[in-house]
Design a protein around this nucleic acid. Structure first.
Lengths: 203, 203, 203, 203
DNA sequence: CATGAATGAGCGTTCATTCAT
DNA sequence: GATGAATGAACGCTCATTCAT
């Protein structure tokens, strides 16, 4: 916010946000995630988030330009973590069917390890979706299209298929958040079989 | 305030909501649907709804215990209308595969004919937390189970399959609301094929 | 705000704000005047005004679109009262010198009878002036110009003269507010003489 | 915090503000003037002032007891600079009429050479409540009184005349701030003529 | 000396709800 | 039955001030 020219930074860089600044922002983001996951996006006011963090409401305003920036940071952080965990597994696959299986499994694994993060982002995106563009092709859609070009997948609308896959995963996420006893392994297996059958080319 | 024991109902001695009461509630629910569909749930304050209905804000409070009850009634009314339009078509089918096709098509037909209602309920469900019990089996799940018993469907988790079907349909609904040019016929065909392949027993 | 179609209005018109509405608005405007006069524009928050009125802060929001509308109404009300009291006396004069004398005296008389109103409007205009246009000619400036055309006034810049007259009157207003014992009659006589001498044509 | 009794001042044993202390305060005051002139008093928060000065916000709190003291210092510094520039010219005059002319011209010259300072102080005085005592006679009033004793000026209330002169000059200042194209020379000539006519003894 | 971090009070505004008529 | 009026809590946000380092 202000340009912090700190006298002797710990390691390399000279400028940039201080250690404590980074930590504080991360802490606040985590609290925002907890709060949104716990009470839902609509009820997650700055007061609620601050209370849960045990800090004053204005601390958030100090570290973030506004609520919007905080929410965007939540999305950015969770997305980055998710991408880091999921895409390597997806990329490692050589077949489209394997890719699809890896996509589903890695998403559900991420849910298992970061349930609150997934809940929070789902809440946010659900509320923001209204004004989102949604017309652009997602990476998943592109992968499906590739599978069709390779002849591995049958002919179908990649867009509708991608919507359905995402919707199915998100739905399982919601169910898992509502009921932590849900067997994610079973769900992953079910969804994998479901979409394998619905995408594979006729033999 | 919720149970109005009014002095002299229109017909018999039996107490209960009067004619005008029922009509008023229905009118308000319709206005709520219009308003939510038009401006979104977040902007649909009681003031907005009342203004759009040309009535005073307090008349809503008079006929409904609170905003929550109104919203629940919106969901109930739209659900009832949807059930009335969709289930006969589903029931008329003799095969499980036909049932599934009818389920998908009738849902998407309802979207086409009642876009505002679908928009409103989608908005509401988006902004309300999913506090449903969700552990009970839905009628759809029961139908899927029946298809398995008949040997028409392969073995799969009827629950996960039902979740996915509903999620896919709702997702199409959201997309249709965001983009009215969406080709619902194509979507219906795509989803029908998708779930036919993923449910059918191996030949 | 809402269109009040009241069943039987008291007198003529059908539509329009109700009696109590008008009274409430007037009361709130009066309280705003009191508050601004007492604590200054910068400190006159809605909370202060509401507290002084013994009402809830939201009552103001109910009767006015926002703080801006309230402030504008203060200006409008005071201006209307001032115009009604002052311009007839100014118009009644047949000479420009008489007009100027009447202008000064009537302004100071208005201050005597409405000290808080004058203070409040002075406060407001002082804070709003920054972004005001101020390039248009005021009625006073036009009158001065007329006096020059008639040969009754000497040659001077009507604009600077008008500025000075207004500034002198406002200054006396400020002094009177700060010190209610100030002899307004003497001030009026002094200013009258001052501007008579400074405007009159050489004999 | 206000009276810093520092262990070893630079020169003598006498305590008092150090060199750097004085310089820092002066720098901050200048930045405050720049900021207020640029963005207006209402937007001139300590954050804005500190950012513009390239210093931390707390350094202001360190050198000044609070925002009030800073603002008062702005007024004091600008007043001192104005006095230094203006009074010698006023003192140099031998006649009261000359004094009055010099008073007006030197004030308007100060505006021309120090527009930011005048803007800032004008902004401050506009937004601060006039809590001055105002009962004491100003030097200008004394000079007017002297002119009367000398028979050079006619009989009038020196107090009201002094008020008017100051108000006229300040008004021109406000107009000049709002419109830098304003012809200050013309204004000076107009005001000089105006007050010469209104003060001079009858010939 | 200097500062990044944190705080609490206050701002104008929105809104579901309540109540006397 | 219906309503205009009023309320209080909560919202996101700003800002002067405080404090440990």
């Amino acid at each position: 916010m202000q340009s912090n020219t700190r006298p002797a930074a710990r390691t390399i860089g000279r400028d940039g946000p201080s250690f404590i600044e980074v930590a504080r922002r991360a802490q606040i983001v985590e609290c925002a995630i907890d709060t949104i996951a716990a009470v839902g996006y609509a009820q997650a006011s700055l007061t609620q988030i601050a209370d849960r963090a045990g800090i004053s409401k204005s601390v958030i305003s100090y570290h973030f330009a506004g609520k919007d920036e905080l929410i965007q940071q939540v999305i950015a952080d969770v997305s980055a973590a998710g991408q880091a965990m999921m895409w390597p597994r997806v990329q490692a696959e050589t077949t489209s069917a394997g890719m699809l299986r890896a996509y589903i499994h890695s998403h559900l694994d991420f849910m298992r390890t970061h349930p609150k993060h997934v809940t929070a982002v789902t809440e946010i995106l659900t509320h923001y979706r209204a004004q989102a563009d949604d017309t652009a092709a997602t990476p998943l859609e592109e992968r499906l299209r590739q599978g069709q070009r390779d002849g591995e997948f049958r002919e179908f609308s990649p867009r509708v298929m991608a919507w359905t896959i995402r919707a199915a995963i998100d739905e399982v996420g919601r169910r898992f958040v509502a009921n932590p006893d849900l067997d994610l392994d079973e769900c992953a297996a079910e969804l994998t079989a479901l979409f394998a059958l619905s995408t594979q080319a006729h033999q």
